Amino acid sequence: MAFIQYLTFDGTQLPLPDSYEVQMEDVEADSGGETEAGTTQRDVVRLGVVSISVSFSVSPKWLKLLTGFKQKEKISVDYFDTQTLEIKKTEMFVEGYKANLVKDTSYKGLWRVSFTLREF
């Protein structure tokens, strides 16, 4: 049985993640809020902006590659959409990048890398 390819960055297929969470948020204008009558008014600028929280257990080679993607201003991302169960393509950026040493080995360690991808 083949695994799903959850993430691909700029054509590079990433390893199977330890955790993968997709969230969709609406972007609202500042003009929204509560009216004088007490009703809520939403001025939605954009619906369904995707953010993906992900973590990996990786080798030093993958640590270096993922750190390189973090340095980029934007990444072309193919991701597994949990609503449609299909692969979608969008442009995203990395924020909240963390790399922790899990275990020291003779091959420069096993690393836990976590970050959040945000759609432009």
Rank of each mutant, 00 (worst) to 15 (best):
V102P: 01
I4Y: 01
S51R: 07
K103L: 08
W111C: 03
F115T: 03
D30F: 04
V45C: 00
Y79S: 07
T105S: 11
R46M: 13
S31Q: 09
S55K: 03
S19R: 00
E21I: 07
T40Q: 13
G38T: 14
L85D: 11
A2D: 15
G33L: 11
L101G: 02
K103W: 02
F80G: 04
A99K: 08
E34C: 04
R118T: 08
V44E: 07
G38P: 11
E95M: 13
Y97S: 08
V102T: 13
E36H: 02
Q5M: 08
T8L: 07
L47Q: 07
K103C: 00
K64Y: 06
K72G: 02
V58R: 08
E34N: 06
M92S: 15
L65T: 15
R46L: 12
S53Y: 08
Q23V: 08
F93T: 05
R42Y: 09
D18A: 01
Q41M: 14
G96A: 08
Y79C: 03
K61Q: 11
L110A: 03
M24Q: 13
Q5S: 10
E119W: 06
S57W: 02
D10T: 03
F9G: 04
L7V: 04
Q23D: 12
W62D: 11
T116G: 05
E95A: 10
G32P: 13
M24S: 07
F3T: 02
S106G: 05
Y6G: 05
L117G: 14
K61I: 14
T40C: 04
I4W: 01
S106T: 02
F120R: 13
K98Y: 07
L110K: 06
K103F: 06
K61R: 10
K74I: 11
Y97F: 15
V94T: 10
D43A: 06
V50K: 01
L66F: 08
I4F: 01
G32I: 08
D30C: 04
